[in-house]
């Protein structure tokens, strides 16, 4: 009976999404250049759920510098900048529990659908929200 299932499987479209491209390119920057010139195409990622807990968003103007987010963050992701009374979020350490979003009294912190956060430098601009 498992054999019948397996035969049926052969006729199915593979579930794996070849994201961003089917094979590892020789040069990533070369591929990105090709994409920019319209010579290559990137497969879109699998759609994410509506309220995925992705990269944090930060509305700097709404922030009052109360530091409650720093108090509840389990991973010490958030750094306080005393001169400006604002915060800096190091997303590389974030555990995506979004407890800071829940506690923020002014709604300055929010969640986004962005999940492409792989980077070789943990201080890259993509991984710092401020």
């Amino acid at each position: 009976m498992i054999f019948a299932t397996l035969i049926k499987q052969l006729l199915h479209k593979p579930a794996t999404n070849p994201f961003p491209v089917k094979y590892m390119p020789k040069s990533v920057t070369g591929l990105l250049g090709k994409v920019a010139r319209g010579e290559a195409r990137i497969n879109p990622p699998v759609p994410v759920p509506t309220d995925l807990r992705g990269k944090l968003t930060y509305d700097r103007d709404k922030c009052i510098g109360c530091q409650l987010c720093i108090k509840v963050c389990p991973a010490n992701v958030i750094m306080f900048k005393p001169d400006e009374k604002k915060i800096r979020i190091h997303v590389a350490r974030c555990t995506f529990c979004h407890q800071c979003v829940d506690i923020c009294p002014t709604g300055a912190l929010g969640l986004s659908n962005e999940f492409l956060l792989a980077d070789t430098d943990r201080f890259s601009p993509n991984l710092i929200v401020e």
Binding site: C73, P74, C97, Q99
Partner: peptide, 9 residues
């Protein structure tokens, strides 16, 4: 840690 942080730990 405080108890909310302990929850995620």
């Amino acid at each position: 840690r405080n108890l909310i942080q302990v929850l995620y730990l």
